[in-house]
Design a protein around this nucleic acid. Sequence first.
DNA 1: AATGAATGAGCCTTCATTCAT
DNA 2: TATGAATGAAGGCTCATTCAT
Lengths: 197, 197, 197, 197
Amino acid sequence: MPKVGMAPIRRRQLIDAAISAIHEYGLADATVARIARKAGVSAGIVHHYFDGKNDLLFAAMRSLLEDLRRQAVARLARAHTPRERTYAIIDASFSCDQFSEEVMTAWLALYGSARHSDRLTRILRIYARRLHSNLTSALLPLLGRREAERVAEGTAAMIDGLWLQYALKGGVDPAHPRQMTRDYVDAQLAVKARVEA
Amino acid sequence: MPKVGMAPIRRRQLIDAAISAIHEYGLADATVARIARKAGVSAGIVHHYFDGKNDLLFAAMRSLLEDLRRQAVARLARAHTPRERTYAIIDASFSCDQFSEEVMTAWLALYGSARHSDRLTRILRIYARRLHSNLTSALLPLLGRREAERVAEGTAAMIDGLWLQYALKGGVDPAHPRQMTRDYVDAQLAVKARVEA
Amino acid sequence: MPKVGMAPIRRRQLIDAAISAIHEYGLADATVARIARKAGVSAGIVHHYFDGKNDLLFAAMRSLLEDLRRQAVARLARAHTPRERTYAIIDASFSCDQFSEEVMTAWLALYGSARHSDRLTRILRIYARRLHSNLTSALLPLLGRREAERVAEGTAAMIDGLWLQYALKGGVDPAHPRQMTRDYVDAQLAVKARVEA
Amino acid sequence: MPKVGMAPIRRRQLIDAAISAIHEYGLADATVARIARKAGVSAGIVHHYFDGKNDLLFAAMRSLLEDLRRQAVARLARAHTPRERTYAIIDASFSCDQFSEEVMTAWLALYGSARHSDRLTRILRIYARRLHSNLTSALLPLLGRREAERVAEGTAAMIDGLWLQYALKGGVDPAHPRQMTRDYVDAQLAVKARVEA
DNA sequence: AATGAATGAGCCTTCATTCAT
DNA sequence: TATGAATGAAGGCTCATTCAT
């Protein structure tokens, strides 16, 4: 049976299995055989749906980015004031999804490999640009462009730095880093307000 | 009697070569053969001075931590006021040494592998604890313990986040992230001063 | 569907090749590459069908035991009197199969390695127990249990000792050691008969 | 200090260490480094006193043969009747020295390797010839040459077979196999006596 | 005489990829 | 579409041997 339309399903299965394997064995030991076993398929099938192992891993990494994007989009849709929009972006980065063990491990692996893969570098470039641009957009109604960009940069650093700390320590309640980042934004805005006053 | 005292020299050679190989080929492709070639020795020698490849890589990672510690110690020795001490710690993290391509790549590789190696996890744990404790100590004369810890956590996040951003973008002037972090500390201290005023 | 049922065929091929390689190069130099070449397959395939080189060698040794068992079973099936049964066991040990160069070399290698491998020790334990128990069973109709066990022990020693001598000297007609062992049994039975007379 | 006359001492040290290493690690894993460590010397020294590892191992094997020869000579010197001489040879093979764990392991290793080393084959050839000739000489006063040789062959087989069984089972009281072999000789001589009567 | 640093060859094993079925 | 048998390359590691000291 030709089973039309299996492609997207299989690809998704394999991507999920890849992320799971990266979490369980580490990127270096996430072999095709292990990924395939996790997906419940044979090892050879990877080459039907991807151009080899690297391509699958790349797709998995890209899906991390996409998941994060969806989080941000969904939360931004429910935000109305500039501050809410800023919070929405912060909260997306500290959502439960982003703090799942598997996702954290995969992101860390991505950081660790990016410098030797143009494709992975590009993913992180897009992530950084998008985060910065989202934050700047959200802050622009409250601050001048220069200030907005500066605060956006600081906020992004805060997000990444706190995420990194918590990713390395293991599963912790994401409420704390989220609040820390909000405080940072609030402080920056407060300073600005005072300056303008 | 054969050449005496070669051990520390060879170990240092091999560690440097390992960091260099990680930079050039990536952690996954930093093979013993390549590391040895960079060190100008044969592949077999690695097992005279280290308990295998993993042990060498671990030693290399540990040397990253040690280099950073030395930076901090040296700069703290020249700092006198609390604020200077805080700046010293920040500056250590953004020193030229820490922004060399090889060092950044190796740290990133460390982040990427830590979750699957207890020994590497411990290195990062020590790094995080030390940074936090150094910052807290420096800030304590200016803030209450709670506040000092909070600001230390934020500052550490700022350092890691900015470092991460710049490490992934490639070589950039470290003056900017250093100033960003100083600004963060200044803002936090300013708020505090105002509250107390 | 891929080739089905290859497993037993390949395993047998590899076991035969292993025994052949042990004969040609010695156990110490029976490398995976050489065994694979003899089997006409690639070196990597060994790990599809065995848990590594040691497992293959162990399987080869076990097959020696199994071949000997089959010889004994076949000959016992055609034997009817107690003496014939005793002869059958002796003859199995001195059958042409057991005196092939390859088999002798492999058994010798087994003797030489057994003391450092529990699994190999067990093989030889089984061999010894089986030989002794077969001989005892065959002799029991003719002798009391004690005598039967004593004669069985002597016969087994005779078999092993003669086999060893001839295995080390190289290919010789097995008729002679066979007859020597039969003579031993006959003598023991004759003594017994006289005692009872 | 030139330390004249160290050669025989060092050679003996190394030979003993080799036998001990064979016992502890097995012939395949008796590396030069391990042997040297057991001898309390450096690894390189082996090549001062032997033509490499193989030569040392060969010397160790030869020393086994020599030890056995000394046992036989000593016991024969105290034997006076033909039967006593025959017993002496048997007893030498089952002396405590020959049943030490280290010696048994080394002999087994010798059996296992002989087929791929002419030098080792020669050692075993000498052993077999010497045993056979000693036994024949001892028996000649009691039997015709043909009979003497036949009984010598049987006795040698008995010795080797029983030794093998006990070497593989682990340390057992050597009194039993010794008695078994004596019984064999006694039976053979008794038969002969009766025939002649 | 003796050391142990250093080499280089070789081995076992793993693994991504291919391919016949 | 899917399997898993099979390959071949490569890597980590061991080890006998050499050699400067």
